[in-house]
Write a protein that binds this DNA or RNA. Structure first.
Ligand SMILES: [Mn+2]
Ligand SMILES: [Mn+2]
Ligand SMILES: [Zn+2]
Ligand SMILES: [Zn+2]
Lengths: 126, 126
DNA sequence: TGTATTATTGCAATATTGTCGCAATAAATA
DNA sequence: TATTTATTGCGACAATATTGCAATAATACA
């Protein structure tokens, strides 16, 4: 299944890159400017996740958020990191904080989803 | 808002206590034997959460799971602990592993939701 | 350049999860 | 027993996300 370049794909990625945060489909649709169907945005996001371009966070509001993946070897963000969801400004940021846990090797770990919810440092000031 | 004792409430709590795991509304409804309305189960669960009897986990399948709270001063389980969701047996267990993270004090932390997803040790054997 | 292949898209329908309003029921209290 | 009101069942509703299908368009190739 070879990928094709489309304006839609690039617009979605561009929104996520410039925001620097994790965004929901709805937030992306608002920011993106051009008119793209909801289902299409979801399909674009899911394909980016499959390809390792984006990663998916499920917050405790039950919604999916998507953020650009930072490669591990760039030593900027570890593979499994915490996320912070601000209830005021409705954003999710990838924290540089790595997730550490020890688990008996009987377990097979496939995904790690860690979200801290509260008020972010910007919103806490005001 | 004084609570009243009902068969429904006790049945829901009993299912969760005997399972020893975190369960979704659907899983509870299947196990509970008696016929209880879906909305009622949710209301019972939400009230138990408000009262500190249960705690809520949102897994990366986007669903809410509920588990009996273990008091912190019993030194059995810490306040914020990891959870493991098994994709095979569809259960979530509260891990004894505490969640550690450091965050600048500018942030206000309200909730912590950490779920590791994969195959649990029981299912990994077979 | 023109054509064939098929990945991508828009649209509508669908599935799933969870909440809410309202009237009926029943637990607690006197 | 009578009163108060927390709880319940039911249906409707909201929100998120996915899927089938036909139309469109990106890519490869003659
Ligand atoms: Mn992240
Ligand atoms: Mn738990
Ligand atoms: Zn904020
Ligand atoms: Zn299992």
């Amino acid at each position: 299944m070879k990928r094709r370049n489309t304006a839609t794909k690039e617009a979605v990625l561009s929104v996520l890159q410039s925001s620097g945060k994790a965004m929901s489909q709805g937030a992306i649709e608002k920011k993106i400017g051009i008119d793209i169907n909801r289902a299409t945005i979801y399909r674009v996001l899911n394909r980016y996740c499959d390809d390792g371009v984006l990663h998916r966070i499920v917050a405790d509001d039950g919604r999916q958020y998507f953020a650009v993946c930072i490669k591990c070897d760039e030593h900027l963000k570890p593979l499994h990191h915490f996320h912070f969801r601000c209830e005021k400004c409705e954003t999710i940021e990838c924290l540089p904080e790595p997730v550490h846990f020890s688990l008996s090797n009987d377990y097979v770990v496939k995904r790690v989803n860690c979200v801290i919810t509260g008020i972010c440092k910007d919103c806490a000031k005001s």
